[in-house]
Design a protein around this nucleic acid. Structure first.
Lengths: 337, 337
DNA sequence: CTGAAAGCGCTTACAG
DNA sequence: CTGAAAGCGCTTACAG
């Protein structure tokens, strides 16, 4: 166990090997020609000495930081936490693999000041936005500053590079699966209708009916269910209308629906089927009777981060990417994508 | 709205004002003498031009990064998430106020490789550990590398600087409150007995009895309740022994206890009192019939971060700090600390 | 293939 | 109070 001596620098390495710093730098970075023999000598020595270049100095010379920022909403609620957490894990993984680090910024909707500090302080090379709003102050600011940005999820702002799961296909497959089993009275409860994700999911829901040659019964479709009251109300009405199944647009809605069904009648869960989207909550939370489409938030973060790094490093990338999902039916599991 | 020109540097400022970079640097940092007049001219110009020093360059010159790392357990479960999230928010707040940024590292118990990368890459000036284990590889590594560290929570490792809430006093007050109301058969369900926090809480529990001149009935005390099964088992036994109250050592235990009581008999919650520790879950989740001691995780993060920065900047600090808590009884709220 | 030198944008002894 | 110069640890034209 060595004691911590003063750090080795590139100059020390050069001195020891009797070459110039230039050569050592080139041998390490792989840029510029260096004889194979010299490269080996350098490599061997730095391995042996466990020399690590000072990334800060490297960054200064290249006007880079090898850091990215991730903006997390400070006001996200418990239901969403696992999603952001998993997403964050994926981002950190991807970053570490390419020797970047992740700087976390919490920000509330209206106030991009935390982000501004980081940008003006030259602390990062790019930013991933984990939640984009319709009028996104953060996104606008970054655009103006010409900072590379990638957003997680779907935003209406098409100028923003964004990565998301294929919610539309997912909802279509889930719904088709139900229709194939002869279920016809399919209810749906969704959140804010102006959210892009809500629209995409409903689009998939409608697609499934269209593909089956059936009409969508809009009287069984509820939007704007953002609070317990509204969801319970919707469930009550759906029960009255004898819905055979309720498709929930997110984890929170699903939890409320299940609770409401249980409270109304313990056996209801055996007669009314529930299907839902599952964003990251540990599986055990959802009842085993629920059919789900599962999204891998960690993977989403991973892909998002890699896309951002590609942009930073000047590689060309697609403006919009869709990730696969997993359909988990009650009888079996089908991988789709 | 200005377009993004090439960044202003200290040399530009010096040139424009007809002084040296040295002077500008001093005027900004406040170190070294500068005439009041010069200082004002500099200040005014950089305000007007919105000049921000390049923190990276400053860092290189001072061998600092103005970043800290926060290590978050990658394997934490849903119950703990709000705690870490709130803690993280507090840390970021405190850091931003002092112009530091926060770099997030996810790490699993055995594997400190993510942390090592960051340290060897010279990316941070210090580290806050949000969960310390008995044999903590991360803590050991940092100690060996002589990196400033502060831990959130109580660790058995007394050489580690740590910040925590005063769990012992909190549990004592909570328990005393119950005893004062004439309750005698007080059950307690706690997690892993080897955890310092569990011991502290039990210590407070016992303190309350001692202060009241009463004996602790150890047959009503359960440790090691880490899974649903064990907790339910404990509840069953406590009901059999006619416990009048159940003190839960954490949110997860409390949730299971409440669920179990409800399942056993819907009215049980009115006869058996439940008291618990509340670490960050949104209040509505816990039943209103539960007496709680509440801890402010965000504040904990805030204080922890400030302590770390004090260390980094060479200020002297206390090795162990205890933060206050809030006792929330069913009838009223008492601030304590 | 290799190196001397300038530069990234700041700080800080040292000498006025 | 102020400035010229060296330095933080790397990279990269430019010239051999």
């Amino acid at each position: 166990m060595e004691t911590v001596e003063k750090k080795l620098t590139i100059a020390d390495v050069a001195d020891y090997l009797g070459v110039s710093k230039t050569t050592v730098s080139r041998a390490i970075s792989g840029k510029g020609r260096v004889s194979e023999e010299t490269r080996k000598r350098v490599q061997q020595y730095i391995d042996q000495m466990d020399y690590k270049p000072n990334v800060i100095a490297k960054g200064l010379a290249q006007s880079k930081t090898f850091n990215i920022a991730v903006v997390i909403p400070a006001d996200c609620d418990m239901q969403e936490l696992p999603f952001f957490q998993n997403c964050m894990c994926g981002i950190c993984d991807a970053a570490a693999k390419r020797d970047y680090d992740v700087l976390t910024v919490y920000s509330t909707a209206g106030d991009p000041s935390g982000l501004e500090r980081i940008i003006t302080n030259h602390k990062v090379d790019g930013v991933v936005l984990t939640r984009t709003l319709v009028e996104d102050a953060a996104a606008d600011y970054l655009k103006r500053r010409e900072v590379p940005v990638v957003a997680v999820g779907s935003s209406a702002d098409t100028s923003l590079i964004q990565i998301d799961h294929d919610h539309r296909s997912a909802c279509q497959e889930l719904t088709s699966h139900l229709l194939k089993q002869g279920i016809r009275k399919v209810g749906m409860i969704g959140g804010n209708e102006s959210h892009v994700v809500t629209r995409n999911r409903f689009g998939g829901f409608a697609d499934a009916f269209r593909m089956a040659g059936l009409p969508v019964d809009m009287s069984l479709v509820y939007f704007g269910a953002e609070k317990a009251k509204e969801i319970e109300q919707a469930v009550d009405e759906l029960l009255e209308k004898n819905a055979e199944c309720i498709v929930c647009m997110d984890d929170m809605i699903c939890n409320h629906v299940i609770r409401k069904l249980r409270e109304t009648d313990v056996n209801l869960l055996n007669t009314v089927r529930v299907a839902s989207f599952y964003g990251g909550i540990s599986g055990s939370v959802l009842a085993s009777q629920v059919e789900t489409v599962e999204f891998d938030a960690k993977k989403l973060g991973f892909v998002t981060c890699n896309t951002l790094l590609d942009i930073i490093e000047g590689k060309q990338i697609a403006v919009k990417q869709l990730l696969p999902y997993k359909l988990r039916t009650i009888e079996q599991t089908v991988i789709a994508g």
